[in-house]
Design a protein around this nucleic acid. Structure first.
Lengths: 264, 264
DNA sequence: AACAAACCCTGTCATTTGACATAGCCGTGC
DNA sequence: GCACGGCTATGTCAAATGACAGGGTTTGTT
């Protein structure tokens, strides 16, 4: 648990992340291999990816994995845990852009631009699979299949942001909350984090407010209203949706068929 | 100008688009070649792209290029004009997701998924460069450089949506409008559509309202307030920002360095 | 000339959401 | 035990935004 390896990993600019494993060994034991929501690589591609990976990194809840405006040395695939992307305005306002689940790729903007336009913070303990930013496009360009997968992930992240824009632009406070809860529970189901349909995830009301563009107080009242209505029961540590279909109808959501996602 | 070629092009599901030129000839005269905001391909790559293109299509203001929920046969690069992406909810509410300018690629989601999650509508007369959807990934996979460019475009579109999410979540009505105006004028400058810093583009107040998640009436009043303040003069047919720096400060925007964009 | 459509503007009032202040709960550390 | 910090809850009032209704201008059509 010593952190003296931080400077060596170049992760010093962010909080507290440290390598728990080095190099490409053990890609055969990738924890994502038994995630049913993910499309699995053929063994030869998986092993080939392994030659590029730099190891596994661990962060704890509250740690900043990326800091807005910096140039991270590593890009990551989420192996376990949940994170969020946030953007800060100069005057202190904060907007949470999206949440990230196992299989998601972190740092595409940095891969392309060098610099991050947002921060990434761990919401739980997380383990990440690290790739070198400078080597990353060698990896992608040498394997067209991975290039496709990366584009797939980017297009789907774009679709998720679109949905979020629709929420912020067209839905009122309660509808937004239901939409967000459904999104999170669905992703939890797809990634095995919500086994009983209940997502165990610690999200404060302040974070919900910053995601949905609402004040903390109004978020609190709306959450209570949804609890009374029996639509969503969202506490500090878990999200429960008694009737997913009803919740979807309430928020005017179409049921995402949730095709299996690729990962790198 | 006859439209009897529509069924032959398979564009019948959308409005009124029709081919004005076929095949890959004349890529050497691409109208994007002298757009200073774009990164130009080397001639051999440009010619190679030409072998894949199916021709040029033209649409008029108000035409639907893609319809939400359908599987378009073509994907496009914008050669001239401006379009918008919109999403409809079942109950009729509409959210405008983003605007598209020359050089932008239309249909990435369709390329990856087959089906469109949003519609695309022309805001001016537009000409588009058409590629076959089914051939598209051959194109991208055979040229790693294009694969990189596509990922670049996807990552930057994602960044633009992030900025829009920040607007909707954190900014009030006036700040949102200023942010949108600055974004549009900046893109106009980059693509040569706003030569004097004034973007000639017909956007109704109803469209602004649907982009910013505001009511039509409130949009009207806020626009007038901004006009009185001398921050943004936005009429039906043009957007003028007397002082770009001041406008940026007002809306808490950081000045985008606007790196040259690639296109395909 | 008459009409309709699309757009912009204004007035009045209702609803949603935010601001501020305060209190309670529950861990943690001393 | 006590103080503290982080989080959730409530009350009251204010500000932002939306709803509805109506009028005006321009443009195109018959």
């Amino acid at each position: 648990m010593a952190r003296d390896d931080e400077s060596a990993t170049g992760l010093g600019q962010a909080d507290a992340g440290h390598f728990i494993r080095n190099g490409g060994e053990r890609c055969g034991e990738c924890p994502l291999a038994d995630c049913r929501g993910l499309h699995q690589h053929k063994p030869e591609i998986r092993d080939w990816i392994g030659t590029f990976r730099k190891g596994e990194v661990r962060y704890e809840r509250g740690d900043q994995v990326f800091v807005q405006g910096t140039r991270p040395p590593y890009l990551f695939t989420v192996l376990s845990g949940v994170l969020m992307r946030t953007r800060l305005l100069e005057d202190g306002r904060r907007q949470i852009i999206n949440f990230m689940f196992p299989g998601d790729f972190i740092g595409l903007q940095a891969a392309v631009d060098g610099e991050m336009g947002h921060s990434v913070e761990a919401l739980t303990s997380v383990t990440l699979c690290a790739f070198s930013r400078t080597q990353f496009f060698d990896l992608v360009i040498q394997q067209p299949r991975l290039s496709f997968d990366l584009t797939w992930l980017a297009a789907h992240e774009e679709a998720a942001l679109e949905e979020h824009i629709v929420s912020l632009g067209q839905r009122n406070a309660r509808e937004r909350m239901v939409a967000l809860a459904v999104f999170l529970v669905q992703r939890g189901l797809d990634t095995g984090l919500a086994p009983e349909g209940i997502l165990q995830l610690t999200v404060t009301q302040g974070q919900i407010a910053d995601m949905l563009g609402l004040s903390l107080v109004h978020t609190n009242r709306s959450l209570q209203a949804l609890r009374r209505l029996g639509l969503v029961d969202w506490t500090l540590t878990s999200i429960r949706i008694p009737n997913l279909g009803e919740a979807r109808r309430f928020a005017n959501l179409d049921d995402g068929p949730s095709t299996p996602r690729p990962y790198i």
